[in-house]
Design a protein around this nucleic acid. Structure first.
Length: 475
DNA sequence: CTATGGCACGGATT
DNA sequence: AATCCGTGCCATAG
């Protein structure tokens, strides 16, 4: 979602401003499209593999030429498109969070599922599957009904239902269900296929409870269920415990483990605009290499030939070409600006959030765009634009949107997650709040509740025991 | 009475 | 100026 390229020729001042701004907020892919378009249309702008100094003729790795006096008149007409910024970040004295973090599981849920069901799909069913997967919410549930999907994809209901069934029975079982209840039922069915005979009765009872007494189960009124089903209370308890232990109302959580949510609408997490890696093998403690991706490699410049030829041509032509040259100069200048800003921004982020880059969510320091803007002496909106819609690949393979570096509460959320993971008996929101206070974090009870919800953790009275990270086979 | 979730307000952030 | 976020208050369920 970017502002369309202006085909008309505006007064320079506005055009400059507009281009600088819009370039900055473009992701690499979007920038590539824009640039390609401009390259095709504007003969004054050219892309060259290597650049030679107009004075000494030497091949340049930097512009302007470090040896010769910089050609002042050409200033701003050339931009290098291979960006590499390296720097040392301060060695840290305190913590020793140097243990290896486990590497990430597969990245995208929709791809993962598509991989599984792909072979079973007919050609016509593929778009339906793609649509459904795109519409999953962050818990892996499907807000729309099958008939709505059918209407939207102009497919027959039976086809949609078939695809839906495939998705629901693919690996994180229960994905694509309409409600948590439906999801649980599907998960139970999947479990039933491999169930050992001994667990069959429990399984059957669990299914019955979920199907007919879901509401009551939610209130944890087990005795009532037992009474209505004419079953022993202990059996109901066993079934409830089984459900608690092996199922999750949020299928993706089971799959992604501890609270790593994916955002299906956010495809820019796939193609990072920036990579951060270790400069040498010296792993921790060394410097970080930050690399800002650019659409093309090489140099972008205003064609010197065309510029020279400007003088001797008809005045009518000259008008148009001079416009073209100016636009080309503008584009390169803006690109320089963009690169400069991105480089400075990333340097700051990488030093400031070194702990987070090396470690995990809990190590994120609070950082605001406003502060970055102040330190870099640019306007706040500049930082906003620079951050918007871009993502960075971290040394350990995580791909995070740049906005994550500015998440105010990520580290606290992580603390909450750890607390709940380590709990022996369910902690109430108030207790969690107290624990946090002991760690020096003053967080209101109400806020803990919000974080809990964000993490997909059920309220204390519902989660009797720790929940498992994935559905395991029963023996 | 306790634990939560909903609504909404104020201040910070973008 | 618009939006986001933490939080307090209140209703509700157990």
């Amino acid at each position: 979602m970017f502002v369309g390229h202006q085909h008309d020729l505006r007064p320079q001042a506005t055009a400059h401003l507009a281009t600088t701004m819009s370039f900055l907020q473009l992701s690499t892919a979007e920038l590539e499209a824009q640039l390609q378009q401009t390259l095709d249309k504007n003969p004054a702008l050219e892309l060259v593999d290597e650049l030679r100094c107009p004075q000494c003729g030497k091949r340049l790795a930097r512009y302007p030429c470090p040896r010769c006096a910089a050609p002042q008149d050409n200033d701003g007409l050339v931009v290098c498109l291979s960006q590499r910024t390296t720097f040392q970040s301060e060695p840290r004295d305190d913590d020793e969070q140097d243990f290896a973090r486990d590497l990430r599981a597969p990245d995208r849920l929709d791809e993962y599922i598509l991989q599984q069901i792909g072979p079973a799909l007919t050609f016509a069913e593929r778009p339906i599957a793609a649509y459904i997967l795109a519409r999953l919410d962050e818990h892996g549930l499907l807000p729309e009904t099958a008939s709505e999907i059918a209407a939207y994809t102009r497919a027959r209901l039976v086809e949609v239902e078939r695809v839906l069934s495939l998705i629901q029975h693919a690996d994180p079982p229960g994905v694509g269900a309409h409600t948590p209840q439906a999801s649980l039922l599907i998960q139970l069915d999947c479990l039933a296929e491999n169930a050992a005979p001994a667990t069959r009765p429990t399984l059957a009872l669990a299914r019955l409870i979920v199907e007919k007494h879901f509401e009551t189960l939610g209130r944890h009124d087990l005795t009532r269920i037992a009474r209505q089903l004419h079953v022993a209370c202990s059996s109901v308890e066993a079934a409830a415990d089984f459900i608690q232990r092996n199922l999750t109302p949020y299928p993706t959580l089971a799959f992604w483990g501890e609270g790593k949510l994916i955002n299906p609408g956010n495809e820019d997490a796939l193609t990072p605009d920036i990579t951060i890696s270790f400069l040498n093998r010296a792993e921790q403690g060394g410097s970080l290499l930050v690399e800002v991706f650019t659409p093309f490699s090489g140099w972008l410049r205003v064609s010197p030939e065309l510029k020279a030829a400007l003088h001797d041509c008809a005045s009518e032509e000259r008008e148009r070409w001079s416009q073209a040259v100016m636009e080309a100069a503008l584009v390169t200048k803006c690109l320089q600006q963009r690169n400069h800003t991105m480089r400075r921004l990333m340097r700051l982020i990488a030093t400031e959030q070194r702990a987070f880059i090396l470690g995990g969510d809990g190590d994120l320091h609070p950082l605001t765009r406003a502060r970055v803007a102040r330190e870099l002496a640019v306007h706040e909106s500049t930082i906003s634009r620079a951050v918007a819609g871009k993502s960075a690949a971290l040394p350990d393979g995580r791909i995070v949107p740049l906005s994550k570096f500015f998440d105010r509460s990520l580290s606290v959320r992580d603390r909450v997650r750890l607390l709940v993971e380590a709990e022996t008996r369910p902690l109430t929101d108030d207790q969690i709040s107290d624990c946090l206070a002991q760690q020096g974090l003053q967080v209101a009870r109400r806020t803990v509740a919000k974080y809990r919800k964000m993490l997909g953790i059920l309220p204390a009275n519902i989660r009797a025991r720790r929940h498992h990270r994935s559905i395991t086979f029963i023996q």
